[in-house]
Design a protein around this nucleic acid. Structure first.
Lengths: 111, 111
DNA sequence: CTGAATCCCCTCTGATACTG
DNA sequence: CAGTATCAGAGGGGATTCAG
């Protein structure tokens, strides 16, 4: 089977919210579960959990649990997650070139 | 909503076989339906049709019909499709960096 | 040869309620 | 606060058959 590398990358970024999660972690460095849920307005806790678990398993993000009450969990990008950011920018910039400018609302490219 | 550009690009490359189709068209320049079906061994005609239609609608590929019997249809990349190739290479190369080298069978990156 | 039509399955995601 | 449990829906893709 061909295209292993392509699929390898795609597996990391497939998932409706992963890029948005990456973006939030990239911007804010350290974010809690509840914050992600608020920033990404329409995501359900179940889906957020799923995406975070996959990303953690893929080595893109780090999950740190503080054993306190109430629970406190922090998510952040790993170096591997950081290394994916430039790739996302390339993807984003190509998209920029194919969207009619009057449909652009806000760009995250090159931020 | 954010991330318009990213989603715009992703819409173009999402679909289980689109990258493989892109790759075949990039390598062979002009390919017929039946050839694609053979090159991409396990794709069903229905799925192949779907992917080609979407890609044509997205402007990535060009479809030329010769009104003869039996039918003769040729597919090729458009300039827009060509412009996506470097993006695919970036994606592919990142994947190359995260796959253990002993799992690599064949690379399409930088070809 | 190039698809279209049909049926089936399966994964992903959403909505909601609940727990330690 | 940070999830888990459960139910449900939509869409993508596979297998097969048929048509112009």
């Amino acid at each position: 089977m061909y295209l292993n590398e392509f699929d390898a990358t795609m597996k990391h970024i497939q998932g409706k919210w992963k890029i948005m999660i990456m973006y939030e972690l990239y911007e804010r460095k350290v974010v809690r579960f509840n914050e992600l849920q608020r920033y990404i307005a329409s995501i359900s806790p179940k889906t957020l959990t799923n995406q975070l678990k996959e990303m953690e398993k893929d080595g893109l993000i780090k999950r740190v649990v503080y054993p306190v009450v109430p629970p406190h969990v922090e998510y952040s990008l790993t170096p591997k997650g950081d290394s994916l950011i430039p790739v996302l920018n390339v993807i984003c910039n190509w998209g920029l070139s194919v969207i009619p400018s009057d449909q652009l609302q806000r760009t995250l490219c090159d931020e």
